[in-house]
């Protein structure tokens, strides 16, 4: 029996395709505009494809905007902070799920409750603390203030709890110290959860704006979002450069996203966490 394609299915596809155009249009517009001259961008009626494509914007932005430096700074903060957070999350997750001590559950609840604290409440005092210890305009202010991530600990605890105790017990009976158990038994088993969490954390750190903006003062230390935002302030009406800066900012994430889509989605929804 040949199945008729229902009208409703066609309508759904059309609706979703229209939505796709709405979603993708700003990205296309941004990339195409980055290859246009300023005159062409403000021209009326507007053109879609560049008439005379030019890479002048990219050259100008890279030289005038110190973008290479911002990129390196972002990468540096990203790598260091992510590695630290992943380790502390695994450690915390292990301690709260496989080790036993008094008040374990109560302490965990207190830690968990800190997730409810909105950023604005702590940010003022954090800034004051940075002034006190002289960490304003240093990478320490960005990294040290984030070494523990409650969400990461929570996710890792859930996942590690699913690891059979027998594996851990037999390692202990073989004389392994607890850190050896952690590194040799637990680490290999949590890879799927780890990559999902890593993506979640990386996205947060890479796109983080407010705190780096408040704490960093030197151009040579800005991360990409901060550099881009301040760039807008300096070149207020130069849309060509701004759009190009935006394009450079988004491009790496976009490329990585296209290759790792499944992991991105799983990372955000932690749907890979279902045991």
């Amino acid at each position: 029996m040949k199945k008729k394609v229902s009208i409703s299915k066609i309508i759904i596809y059309i609706f979703l395709l229209l939505g796709t155009i709405i979603i993708l249009f700003p990205f296309f517009w941004m990339f195409l505009s980055s290859f246009k001259t300023m005159e062409e961008i403000v021209a009326f009626p507007p053109t879609f494809f560049p008439e005379n494509p030019t890479i002048a914007n990219y050259i100008n932005v890279w030289s005038e905007m110190n973008f290479g430096r911002y990129f390196l700074n972002s990468v540096f903060v990203l790598v260091v902070k992510t590695l630290i957070i992943l380790y502390t999350s695994i450690l915390g997750g292990y301690v709260f799920s496989k080790l036993h001590f008094r008040f374990r559950n109560g302490i965990f609840l207190i830690v968990l409750s800190t997730m409810m604290i909105p950023v604005p409440v702590t940010i003022l005092s954090l800034y004051q603390e940075m002034v006190w210890v002289g960490w304003i305009d240093t990478y320490k202010a960005l990294i040290i203030t984030g070494v523990f991530n409650t969400f990461g600990i929570f996710v890792m605890k859930q996942f590690i709890a699913g690891i059979p105790d027998s594996l851990i017990e037999s390692a202990r009976l073989d004389g392994a110290g607890e850190f050896r158990v952690l590194h040799q038994i637990i680490f290999p088993l949590i890879k799927p959860a780890l990559s999902a969490l890593a993506i979640f954390i990386c996205l947060q750190i890479w796109n983080d704006f407010l705190w780096p903006f408040l704490v960093m003062n030197s151009d040579s230390k800005y991360t990409i979002p901060v550099g881009l935002a301040l760039f807008k302030g300096r070149f207020y009406t130069d849309y060509a450069k701004q759009l190009t800066g935006a394009a450079i900012t988004i491009l790496p994430v976009l490329v990585i996203y296209l290759f790792l889509q499944k992991q991105f989605v799983e990372g955000i929804t932690m749907s890979g966490m279902k045991e």
Partner: peptide, 23 residues
């Protein structure tokens, strides 16, 4: 469709804001 609709989520809000200011 899942890939497309999720795409804006991964982009930086700072960069996206610039694009929409222009739009």
């Amino acid at each position: 469709f899942r890939t497309v609709y999720f795409l804006p989520v991964v982009a930086s809000m700072v960069a996206i804001s610039l694009v929409w200011v222009w739009i």
